[in-house]
Structures are given as structure tokens and as C-alpha cells.
């Protein structure tokens, strides 16, 4: 779905925020939404339950303008984290160019993180994507919580980052690490697009 289209001079990147429920995916998008000048952002679309849990997905289009002669657009999506929404996750993942895996840094959520990470890999594999070459970055969110509740960046890397992805500490609520993460995944995606790689099937 994504491409560097030389004919229409457009670059479109689809980035999906993935992770267990309540890890902060939507918060990431909300923070970005708040920082993007109005002229450059589309409407953020969310389908949420009454308790603010993402039921379907969030969608935030960002127009970066014309860069090197190319109209550049990013489309940011989140998936519902809850285990039983796997069909939706698969749907949203289709055609993705990169994934930000938002992990919850709390020690008690480690299992959820692992489960979601495995689910991500299974879904990518299910779409014929070679996970070894697919752009993924990790964000360890909620690093602002008291130290005795959370795992450190290094601990989380040991536990989750066995593929040696780039990883960023984050506090999505206040915005720490949000743009760093977005920049990290964007660079990977652009690099891959330019090399002729396709997105998820």
C-alpha cells in the first residue's frame, strides 16, 4: 500500500502502533495530534468504548508537505490491544509499512507484552511478511512511573527485544520519546521504501 510513487510524486507511509491493551498506543497518537499544526493534520478518527478503550482503531493522517518534490503523507494507526480483537488487528496491519510496538513498562504487564509481541509476529507471518526485515521499533512506555513498579530500559530489552530492534523509553502522556519513536520508525520505513521493499501484504 505504501510507496514512493514517482508518477504522482507521492510518498505514503502507513505506520501501525501495536501493543497490549492500555499500553499507551492511542496516547502516542493523541500526543502527536496535539503537536502537529492544524494545517498539516487530518482529523483524528477514533472508535472507542465508553471507557475510552479502543474498540476498532485510531487513525491519524499527517501531511508532511512537499519534500524533495514529493508530497509526503504519514498515516498512523493503532490497533485494539485486547486479545479478542485479533481480527481487527489483522485488518489494520494489512499494508503496514512499519510497526511501533508500544510496551507497558510495568513489571506486572510483562506477560501481556510478550503475548502481544508474539501475536504481532504471528499476524505478520500470517500476511507473508518476513519479520526479520520488517521495520519495527519498540517503545517502552510509562517510564515515568515509580521505579519499583517498572522494568528498566535494559531489562525490557532483555525480555522483549530479542530481534535487536531500535527501542525508545517513553512517557506518552507527557510526550517524552513519542517523536523520537516516530522518527525512528519513519527512518526505517523510508529506507525500506526507497530500497523497493513492500509493506505488509
Amino acid at each position: 500500500m505504501s510507496l514512493v510513487n514517482f508518477t504522482t510524486r507521492e510518498i505514503t507511509c502507513k505506520i501501525v502502533y501495536y501493543g497490549p491493551g492500555r499500553s499507551g498506543k492511542t496516547t502516542n497518537l493523541q500526543y502527536i495530534y496535539g503537536r502537529v499544526p492544524e494545517a498539516r493534520r487530518g482529523r483524528m478518527v477514533s472508535l472507542a468504548t465508553q471507557t475510552d478503550r479502543t474498540l476498532f482503531f485510531d487513525f491519524l493522517p499527517i501531511d508532511l508537505g512537499v519534500i524533495s518534490g514529493f508530497t509526503t503523507r504519514f498515516q498512523l494507526y493503532t490497533v485494539p490491544g485486547q486479545v479478542y480483537y485479533n481480527a481487527t488487528r489483522k485488518l489494520v496491519l494489512q499494508g503496514a509499512d512499519g510497526v511501533v510496538f508500544v510496551a507497558d513498562s510495568q513489571a506486572r504487564r510483562l506477560e501481556d507484552n510478550l503475548e502481544s509481541l508474539q501475536n504481532l509476529q504471528a499476524n505478520l507471518l500470517g500476511q507473508g511478511v518476513d519479520v526479520r526485515n520488517f521495520p519495527v521499533v519498540l517503545q517502552y512506555n510509562k517510564q515515568d512511573l515509580p521505579a519499583d513498579l517498572i522494568l528498566t530500559h535494559a531489562d525490557l530489552d532483555d525480555a522483549l527485544n530479542f530481534r535487536n530492534y531500535r527501542s525508545f523509553p517513553g512517557d506518552a502522556l507527557r510526550g517524552a520519546g513519542v517523536f523520537e519513536t516516530l522518527k525512528g520508525i519513519s527512518e526505517l520505513v523510508l529506507k525500506r521504501l526507497a530500497a523497493g521493499g513492500a509493506g505488509a501484504a
Binding site: 496535539g34 478518527v45 512537499v66 519534500i67
Partner: peptide, 21 residues
Amino acid sequence: ALAAAAPGGATATVEAPPAGS
């Protein structure tokens, strides 16, 4: 990037206000 950007079109059905971040 310098060019003025037009907002991208949203396609989903339900809109939520920007989160009060």
C-alpha cells in the same frame, strides 16, 4: 518541507475530538 499541506481525508465513520493532551 515548505509547501503548505492540505489535511488528509479521514475515512472512518466515528470521530472523536482530539484527546486533551
